Simulated scan of single mutants.
Amino acid sequence: MKKGILLVNLGSPDSPNPKDVKTYLGEFLMDERVIDVPLWARNLLVKGIILNTRPKASAKAYQKIWWEEGSPLIVLSERLQAKVQRQVDFPVALAMRYGSMTIREGLQELVDKGVEDVLLIPLYPQYAMATTETILVLAEEIRQAYFPKLNITDLKPFYNNPDYIKVLANSIAKHLEGKDYEHLLFSYHGVPERHIRKSDITKSHCNPKPSGDCQCCKTPSPAHEFCYKHQCVEVTRLVGEKLNMEEGTYSTSFQSRLGFDPWLRPYTDRTIERFGKEGMKKMAIVTPAFVSDCLETLEEIAMEGEEIFHEVGGKDFTTIPCLNDSDEWVALLAKWINEWATAEMAPV
């Protein structure tokens, strides 16, 4: 069977215009794996409240980070796709979970090239309902409806893959070289605490704590295969070990919460504020839940986060870019693709 690759990232509005932002937010927030409440409640919350208040503010945020070429996340993902394509012998397509670059279109592009066997790569290191799971569920629905003869295999979360940890650690070390900082904060996209409990296949292991110090994350369990928080904590731990960082000089936090339900803690904005109030003058921050820089990294962290730090007395705020289309990251993706293809082609 002819093989092909589909890279899938989150997505973006077509423009920073409030109308386009509203359309994008509507699709994103109406996903039952993003806001996991009954449909009537989701309709009331999203269509009755959020879409009448949030698009203008979000549009202003997008306008701050929008590039001449377009949305940074889209542009960076396209650069990644192009570089990966040059290193593998299989067609590589790009799609987004939300927005106009749909998964159906990505699969159609591959099918039109004669592809029968697809490696779907969700561009998220960790597993979560609102990222990996929603991509895989939608891809399977599309396959059944439009491409029933297509075979799709997905790349599993790679948060603890030694090669990924090496690439991430090298990227962090490169961007911190020559920098003087007191603390490195690993900021991950937040999710509601209930998502962690819902993803717990044991139904008894995961128990997020308000302090953020969840012992269940450190206790081996089958639940960790789908536990977003455990996987985030592991990335921090493994990178800290790889870089020989001293205990207390790095930590984990979670950003981008929405609504009033408890989300994973500690919260990034409050952590940054606390650091400054405690007298910290120089900090660095990295966002390993994302492989491509986007609104959450370029505006929420690099702009709002720095502003918070300066307001409470901090001075130097170093933001480390995502892996984006770095050569090491491209080479690693190409390696995984070639390993998949080789295994698939090997005699049974």
Rank of each mutant, 00 (worst) to 15 (best):
H224K: 14
L264S: 09
Y250G: 08
Y124C: 03
C232A: 12
D14G: 05
C227H: 15
Q215M: 12
G4C: 04
K315P: 01
V239Q: 02
I320H: 01
I172D: 06
R194E: 14
E141G: 00
E225Q: 09
E225Y: 14
E296N: 13
M129L: 10
Y250S: 09
T342I: 13
V348R: 02
D31S: 01
V88Q: 05
I49A: 00
A343S: 14
K179F: 11
M245N: 14
K2V: 04
K47D: 09
A130Q: 00
N52V: 05
G276R: 13
I121S: 00
F186P: 06
T102Q: 08
T23F: 06
S171D: 06
G106H: 01
H175G: 03
Y228V: 15
M283Q: 03
E306S: 00
F309L: 10
T236D: 05
T297I: 09
P321N: 03
T53Q: 04
V75C: 11
K64L: 05
G106M: 06
G48S: 01
P192L: 14
Y181K: 04
V233W: 15
E306T: 14
A346G: 07
K83E: 08
L168K: 10
E278R: 12
E300G: 01
E339T: 07
I142H: 01
R33A: 06
T268C: 10
A343E: 13
G279W: 07
R274H: 15
Y146A: 11
K56L: 08
P220C: 02
R257I: 14
V115Q: 00
L138C: 03
K174D: 01
Y159C: 01
K60Q: 15
V286M: 06
V167I: 12
P222W: 08
T297R: 12
L155C: 03
N170G: 02
V88Y: 05
L45K: 01
G11Q: 02
T132Q: 03
D200C: 11
Q87H: 12
R237I: 06
Y188A: 12
S58G: 00
F260W: 07
V111Q: 00
A223N: 11
G190R: 00
K335A: 08
I337L: 05
H205G: 11
I320N: 01
L258D: 10
I152P: 03
